[in-house]
Design a protein around this nucleic acid. Structure first.
Lengths: 336, 336
DNA sequence: GCGTGACGTCGAAGCGCTTCGACGGGCGAA
DNA sequence: TTCGCCCGTCGAAGCGCTTCGACGTCACGC
């Protein structure tokens, strides 16, 4: 293994000079820097991560805790993770993967052993049991999603309330008067994941504001459940012409179900969704949707963390504004 | 930060004794071990990962390179990753997440800086550009999938050839005489990912052995493409009664397409698939399938790596035998 | 009774890097 | 001309841990 002293000798300088040439933490003459860089290249020098971490008390590694529970949409998690890794690399950091399963112990372990400098936690619940730990940890963290009380924490997510509103407002603008929200599986509400409830809030508030008749329906992530909900909606709200879907796996099955029940999309029924663009585009009838900006959330989460590591203050809450893309699944209301 | 000297003082022993008590690398009296453990608990001691890595030249971290290209099925990758993390934890290791995108440089970086002790590489191609690097690296690695030449490497995967054979043999046993394979998207074959070709080999070989008429059809991962393939099959092989599907996203759309073309599954057409059990079970007609054992592959990959890190020899190739689960999509051939 | 090991513990020497204080030389200001 | 200061570099002191050799003790066998 080639070490910093080898580089120093080869470049005719001291090890500390090599270190400063690499880190830029002290001024180094152009000439010396050149010689050092050349020596590094010629010898193929790579600083030892452990030694670095020990001496500088910075590991340049971030922890990412991913969820693995029922009701989460895997591709979204994956995109998010990839975006975190990619962004972290831009800041010369790596990413350690933890599973939700490890829980508090896992977080404490990687933080206390100085394996990581900071943490990113996904799938935050309203009363997430990890909150006290994250508050007490000496290392900065960012949460994806919002707990009930975000005091002293840093959170980021799509503004799901606004997303729900945007969907309703779009439908209202098209003249629809009776709308329904088909939401996430019941367990998602039961465990009080904030984003699901926020959508409901936004949906309901906007419907009330616009004077629309509305209803909310949690739904299992199976085609059969989708069909049941479709039938129920038609039975209970025969005047229904607008639907908002916040449940990735059943988006397509639900549209199928409506069509099989004799409703054309968007002819008889307009559908909007809150889901990744990728999914919205791949449905048979491309769906007007509010995008789930996983890549952007991941990128910003890392940037927030970098700021905190740099000692800067960051806002406690970052809500990404929803952006709606109009596709083929919505149209002005026809008929009476 | 509480360090090993604090623990030593508190327990009335020397730091080296604490170290040995923790690692068990030298015999320690029961009494001393007890005192040390108590001191650790009372002080909340956590060994500093960097210091450990520096002194022992072991970071206890594994690198996992995940693919992000088109044509791969995200949930499978995710399950695999989770199983790697979980298994690694059982061996007191953590997992660093790298993306394919980082390429050779990324691998070399984490290996050369001693950030990781060993590497797991997914989505290996027949002539994977990373092979020379992995061979030359001083750190052990395991590949998920098989390159054309696995000399000097350690590879593990489902035995896809056998999987293809098992599917055909199952259909043959049910009396089917004309079969087709609907495979992965063309790009998967173009870039010569071994597993896709292996399935074709097994499928073809078994069909020939059993004297079945057979054909092979790569297929894009879209419902529209599935429908086109279904139509084409009916046109070109009107006597077709058995289909093997090796393409997760279109499994359900393909069955839908067949049924819309007037073929009942399994009445008129038997369908088997190579896919995760989870998917096979969630289709409207549960599909007889060979499981994609991502969790098992991940677990065994880590175990292989641990053996290599322990200095033990491991087989170059590990092929997991396919296991078929019979479900509702296959039935004996009826008619003439 | 003494040599021989095994056992349990200690002290010291690093592992490879960062960082702090110091120092010489050059330059501008007084 | 001299003082002070900044620039560029060096040396040394750790960072917190593991590991190696050494040493004292005890039990055992001859």
């Amino acid at each position: 293994m080639v070490k910093i002293t080898d580089v120093a000798r080869h470049a005719g300088v001291s090890p500390s000079t090599v270190s400063y040439a690499i880190s830029g933490k002290r001024p180094i003459s152009e000439e010396t820097r050149r010689r050092v860089e050349e020596a590094i290249r010629e010898l193929g020098y790579r600083p030892h991560a452990g030694a670095r971490a020990l001496a500088s008390s910075r590991s340049n590694v971030l922890a990412l805790v991913i969820p693995l529970r029922a009701g989460i949409h895997v591709p979204v998690v994956m995109r998010f993770a990839v975006s975190v890794v990619t962004t972290a690399r831009r800041y010369d950091h790596d990413v350690l993967l933890l599973t939700q399963e490890e829980g508090d112990d896992g977080l404490r372990r990687v933080a206390d052993t100085a394996l990581v400098d900071a943490l990113i936690v996904m799938d935050v619940q309203l009363h997430d049991p990890r909150l006290p730990l994250l508050r007490s940890l000496e290392r900065p963290s960012v949460m994806i999603g919002f707990p009930a009380d975000s005091e002293g924490l840093t959170c980021i997510d799509l503004d799901f309330k606004a997303a729900g509103e945007v969907c309703v407002e779009h439908l209202a603008r098209l003249g629809h008067r009776v709308v329904a929200l088909v939401g996430s599986p019941p367990e998602v509400y039961v465990r009080q994941t904030a984003f699901a409830q926020r959508v409901v809030q936004g949906f309901t508030a906007a419907a009330d504001r616009s004077g629309l008749a509305s209803s909310v329906h949690p739904c299992e992530a199976s085609p059969a459940a989708a069909r049941r909900v479709a039938e129920q909606l038609l039975r209970e709200q025969p005047a229904l012409t607008g639907v908002v879907v916040h449940n990735e796996p059943i988006l397509e099955p639900l549209i199928d179900a409506f069509e099989q029940l004799g409703l054309r999309v968007p002819g008889d029924l307009s559908v909007t969704a809150i889901c990744p663009d990728e999914l919205a585009e791949s449905v048979r009838v491309p769906v007007t949707s509010v995008a789930l900006p996983s890549a952007e959330v991941g990128e910003q989460a890392v940037q927030l963390l970098m700021k905190k590591l740099g000692g800067a203050a960051v806002p406690e809450a970052t809500l990404l504004p929803p952006t709606m893309t109009q596709r083929a699944s919505t149209a002005p209301r026809t008929g009476p």
